[in-house]
Simulated assay, not measured.
Amino acid sequence: MARTVLGEPGYASLSDVPGTVDVVGVYRRSEYAGAVVDEAIAAGAGAVWLPIGVIDEAAGMRARDAGLDVVMDRCPAVEWSLRRAG
């Protein structure tokens, strides 16, 4: 809904984003995540990331079946800090 976010343009939907989408972060409650995952599939995204507490196994399977990488119920900040520490 925002026109800009941190100086970057905002878009109403993934289909409005020009160019390719690498990763879609799904920061919605689990019951709404599947619709966003379906948009990511339709947009040709490379991956979807559902953070801690956001779980939709059926949507994850649809994304995997469509060739997307799927990360579910994980926090990017935690994952990145573990990689740097290891």
Rank of each mutant, 00 (worst) to 15 (best):
M1Q: 12
R3L: 15
T4H: 02
T4L: 07
T4V: 13
T4N: 09
V5T: 13
L6F: 12
G7N: 10
G7W: 06
G7S: 10
E8S: 14
E8M: 13
P9G: 13
Y11F: 15
Y11A: 05
A12G: 13
A12C: 01
A12D: 14
S13F: 07
S13D: 07
L14Q: 08
V17Y: 03
V17L: 11
V17T: 07
P18W: 00
P18D: 04
P18E: 03
T20R: 14
D22M: 03
V23M: 11
V24S: 02
V24K: 03
V26T: 08
V26Y: 07
Y27W: 06
Y27M: 11
R29C: 06
R29M: 12
E31F: 08
G34I: 07
V36S: 02
V36E: 00
V36A: 10
V37R: 01
V37K: 00
D38V: 09
A40I: 03
I41C: 09
A42K: 04
A43V: 04
A43T: 02
G44M: 05
A45E: 01
G46P: 04
G46S: 10
A47M: 09
V48A: 01
W49T: 05
P51F: 00
P51L: 04
I52T: 08
G53L: 05
V54D: 00
E57K: 09
A59H: 04
A59R: 00
M61T: 15
M61Q: 15
R62G: 03
R62C: 07
R62F: 05
R62Q: 06
R64F: 06
A66G: 09
L68V: 11
L68H: 02
L68N: 04
L68K: 03
D69C: 08
D69K: 12
V70H: 01
V71I: 15
V71K: 04
M72L: 08
M72G: 05
C75I: 08
P76H: 02
A77F: 10
A77P: 07
E79A: 13
W80R: 09
S81V: 13
S81W: 14
L82T: 10
R83F: 12
R84W: 05
R84Q: 15
R84P: 01
A85G: 09
G86I: 08
